[in-house]
Amino acid sequence: MKIDDLLPQLFPNGYDIAFDGDYFAGQGDGVAVIGTRDRAAIGAELAFRMAGEVLRICRDHPGRPILLLVDTLGQKMSRKDETICLNAYIAHLAKCLDVARRRGHRIIGLVYGEAVSAGFLSSSLLADACYALPEAEVKVMNLPAMSRVTKIPLERLEALSETSAVFAPGVANYIAMGAVRGLWEGDLARCLQDALAGQDDPDTDRRREDGEARGGRLLACRVAAEVRGAVPNDAA
């Protein structure tokens, strides 16, 4: 969905959001909004800008919930950005979101366009809860590229992706694996209000449990619990 169509549906009472290139920020109904559009590549400057807005919200609007609307094709592929350590800028954004969460800002992510790799990692995957529109696209890599890199025939990947949520693109797979909590359909303002009313403990990451309960990710929960609970005598 285009951002111009999305915002009026999320904030029917109006909103005040300023656009600058592929970046935007502002508020609607007392909810802070930070986002990107047009499949933005997340480079150092964009990550820095988003982090700065998170810090500003923490300072100027304590407790105000934050809605992340990030449409991204992934990280910017750039020698200059890598030279100044792009990963440090993206990590900085992640730290800012985490500190905001611990200062009482509820953070909701909505994938309304595309969410790919590091662009997804540094935004909605760090939210208290991440949702998606049905037409959103979530992926690491498309199957033809994956086939080239892994040298596994495309037909085999296509056949396996019918039964496995583990590698093929698609919102449904990310829901099954617990990373996306659910779809927003119909009254989007209502969906937002419901999500804001929820509660998540910043120290509890329930995505593994959701993935297991939904049958999309069967090992993460058990393996992490075994490492957490291993007693040294038992370990050998």
Binding site: F120, Y174, M177, A179, G211, R217, A220
Partner: peptide, 12 residues
């Protein structure tokens, strides 16, 4: 990449 979605979520 062989388990791309699971790997991405695991990193997060």
């Amino acid at each position: 990449l062989h388990e791309a979605n699971a790997g991405l979520i695991a990193v997060s």
